[in-house]
Simulated assay, not measured.
Amino acid sequence: MFININKTDFPKLYKRLFKNAPTRNNLFQLEFARAWANPDLIEVKEPRFAYELKPQFQDFFESSNEPFLGFDNPLNEHPEYHTAKEWQRVDDDIKNMYKKVEEK
């Protein structure tokens, strides 16, 4: 089964299964085999992104202690992470005030 996993067609899976220390490879291959045998173990996670207030809007929020449309910390001391689906529900005018900064 593992012979069909090549780095061209499945680069991330290939790296996960074969490009670690031998003991880690064995652990990851066993984990993959379990998921293959029981697909209910597979959990698909949607990437989450942190959004940071653009510099030109920071002065406005420094004077306010009010949460802003679910962004409890507009100055991004502890950035909040949102999925693309959650971000779609944010008003376009608000989206323009933030930029995507990192994936979690």
Results as ranks from 00 to 15, higher is better:
Asp59Gln: 13
Ala21Phe: 03
Arg16Leu: 15
Phe61Cys: 04
Phe57Lys: 04
Tyr14Lys: 01
Asp9Gly: 08
Asp9Met: 11
Glu80Cys: 07
Phe60Lys: 13
Phe49Val: 00
Trp87Val: 00
Asp9Phe: 01
Ser64Glu: 11
Phe2His: 12
Asn4Ala: 14
Asp40Asn: 11
Lys12Gln: 09
Lys45Met: 02
Leu27Cys: 06
Asp91Thr: 02
Thr23Tyr: 01
Asp72Pro: 03
Tyr14Gln: 03
Asn26His: 09
Trp36Val: 15
Lys45Tyr: 00
Arg48Pro: 04
Phe60Met: 14
Glu43Phe: 03
Glu66Ala: 07
Arg24Asn: 08
Glu103Ile: 15
Arg89Met: 13
Glu46Ala: 13
Leu17Ser: 00
Glu62Lys: 05
Asn6Pro: 06
Glu77Asp: 09
Pro55His: 04
Asn73Ser: 12
Phe57Ser: 05
Asn4Ser: 15
Asn4Trp: 10
Glu66Met: 07
Pro47Phe: 02
Val90Ser: 04
Phe10Ser: 13
Lys95Gln: 14
Tyr98Trp: 12
Glu43Trp: 03
Lys19Asn: 12
Ala84Thr: 00
Lys12Val: 12
Asp72Leu: 12
His78Arg: 14
Ile3Ser: 12
Ala35Cys: 12
Lys99Val: 11
Arg24Val: 15
Phe71Gly: 01
Asn4Leu: 13
Ser64Leu: 14
Tyr14Phe: 15
Leu30Arg: 07
Leu69Arg: 05
Lys15Pro: 05
Asp40Arg: 08
Asn73Phe: 10
Arg16Met: 13
Leu30Tyr: 05
Asn20Thr: 03
Asn26Asp: 10
Asn6Tyr: 05
Glu77Lys: 12
Lys19Pro: 02
Ala37His: 11
Glu62Arg: 05
Met1Gly: 14
Asp59Trp: 07
Glu31Arg: 10
Pro22Phe: 03
Ser64Tyr: 09
Pro47Asp: 01
Glu103Arg: 10
Glu66Val: 09
Gln58Thr: 11
Pro11Trp: 09
